[in-house]
Design a protein around this nucleic acid. Structure first.
Lengths: 340, 340
DNA sequence: CACCAAAATGTTTGCGCTATCAATTTCCCC
DNA sequence: GGGGAAATTGATAGCGCAAACATTTTGGTG
């Protein structure tokens, strides 16, 4: 910086002012400084700046499994939004979901001096751990349910589940069965709740949810074998299934077809997420679309709000902000009216 | 830090020594300092440390589309490995793949003072842009082909393609058609090259590759309609197809089945990647597995090597290190001998 | 028990930057 | 053209830490 100052014939302080867009710099001087900066290929030292301003312009993202489509998309949305606002993103992947691992990740990011964090770990254990973080720094949870005592941004799972269930009911199915996600995940709980609520509201029988799903195609496949038998039940046949997510639906689809059943003629299946491949399943999957990107962007906007507020010396908001993003129904070919 | 020093009754320098594991500290003193640190909840200021040591222990990852399974998995592998080595990971997502966007991302990370970078952007344009980066900081490209003049870690695409092609040939197919990936991607080029080489080596006819794939299921589906017609060709029927990746294979599968063709009886299909869902396609997909996680880990190890070397004052290695990870064949149900 | 080397600790300095305050220049109006 | 406010620039201090050197303590030896 001293070199730049010398080259431009000003003091280093003036260089600093140019860098920080201070108002009172004569345009000619600014030009000269800018030229010197370009000339010398100077780039400010973030560490020194952070040291004195006490701001790092870095945000942390904690994610459980960035390999899943949802978290990956959210991370992407977050990064895009951060770039626009000139923030950096540091990631911390969780290897396990116990309290310790979550707290570790938080610590790691705090050591890194991030100004805010976004947590993508929609599970009970994570949320519990999180609520114990006596953190001085803003933290936003993503997809952590609308009930947690945290700032959060989430897709409205209940509304999505309701839309899926209603759609099948509208098609003429007597009731809708539900392959639930892992009970430890809030998303799974909320989807189950939405499904149940809709059934009750519409006066349809409420069958026992089918547990054992873990979001994977594998679990859907395993559960699918039992379900196939129940489709053939003369007394009380299963005719429509709402799966907790698309991967599970894929596994289920496969298991059921393997036993010779036709989808959607003999069994309607609806998923949740709308992963890119869903359109090319056989048959293409009817599902509920979540706009993960948007969730990511909103989450980022929320932290930044919190961060800016905190930076301005404002106290934490009286109430944790909460944002939900609406899901939408995508009708494709895995659903149909029941056989007569 | 001063507070800690006072609480422990030592100078701040001794605290610093404890923090940095310097040898000459009396165990009793170390204990006292550690206790004071815990007591006060002290955490060192990374900015100040970075300022004086000129090291940030931060690595940058540039990725094109973290939403795809491959990049997402690699990012995950990288983060895991980084954590173990006590490095931080900052990500920069690319919105487009032009030169400018790549260079921007590099600049952004440099401003952030990362010590090394990993680029996940296996396309010609990205590689070209990258080779122009007159970077003083270590840079490793992931999956950027074995030909680029960059340090790189990659899956051995040619070997994978060879394995896939040979397998189909061994099954008795006269030749193997190839639905290629986007020509601008190195992976696609290498897979095509491996396929061609194998055909030639085995004395099989080399049909024109089928272009137009963009890794997506959608493109596979569109291409699949034409391919279905060619399967029915009496003169010169297509009997086996090697797809550039699993998603494309999924689309192809779907298109072909829609025209009433049976897989694998009438057409064998093999993919590349082994995404988690591949096992649950209808039929389960035979494919080539890539160990993305491992690639990520190796990439990280490679940058760290470079970084440590640079930190130790060693010059850049005379030759860019290059690592390849071997793919493996996973046989499932989408492949069979040709009809008699 | 004196003496010296090695171990342990303390003091000072500066990393590159921004904030604060002081000094200088510019501009406007009478 | 003089005066004063506003705009512009400069000088100095310190953010929190580790490196380099200075100092004190410890331990072993003759």
């Amino acid at each position: 910086m001293a070199d730049v100052a010398q080259a431009a014939g000003v003091s280093h302080q003036t260089v600093s002012r140019v860098l920080n867009d201070h108002p009172n710099v004569k345009p000619a001087t600014r030009e000269r400084v800018l030229a010197a900066i370009r000339e010398l290929g100077y780039r400010p030292n973030v560490a020194a700046r952070a040291l004195v301003t006490r701001r790092t312009r870095t945000l942390g993202v904690i994610s459980f499994n960035t390999t899943l489509y949802g978290p990956a998309s959210m991370l992407y949305g977050i990064e895009q939004a951060a770039k626009d606002l000139d923030y950096f993103v540091a990631v911390a992947a969780l290897s396990a979901l116990d309290r310790r691992s979550v707290l570790d990740a938080v610590e790691r990011l705090r050591d890194q001096a991030v100004e805010g964090m976004i947590v993508i770990a929609p599970q009970n254990s994570a949320v519990n751990a999180l609520s114990q973080v006596r953190s001085d720094i803003p933290l936003v949870a993503v997809g952590c349910g609308t009930h947690a005592a945290l700032s959060s941004v989430a897709v409205d799972n209940e509304a999505g589940a309701e839309r899926a269930t209603s759609y099948l009911l509208d098609l003429g199915h007597r009731t809708v069965h539900h392959v639930a996600g892992p009970r430890s995940w809030l998303d799974a709980q909320e989807r189950e709740a939405g499904w149940r609520r809709t059934l009750i509201a519409r006066g349809a029988p409420v069958p026992e949810p089918i547990y054992g799903g873990d979001w994977s195609a594998r679990s859907g496949f395993e559960l699918g074998r039992e379900i196939a038998d129940r489709v053939r039940d003369e007394q009380d046949p299963v005719t429509a299934v709402f799966c907790a997510n698309d991967h599970t639906a894929l596994g289920l689809l496969r298991a059921v077809q393997q036993t010779g059943l036709k989808v959607p003629e003999e069994l309607s299946i609806i998923g949740f997420d709308d992963i890119p491949e869903a359109e090319y399943f056989g048959p293409p999957l009817t599902t509920i679309r979540q706009d993960f990107d948007e969730v990511g962007r909103r989450a980022l906007a929320t932290v930044i709000d919190l961060v800016d507020n905190a930076a301005a010396g404002a106290p934490a908001p009286r109430q944790a902000p909460r944002v939900t993003v609406g899901p939408s129904l995508v009708v494709r070919a895995s659903t149909a009216p029941p056989k007569a």
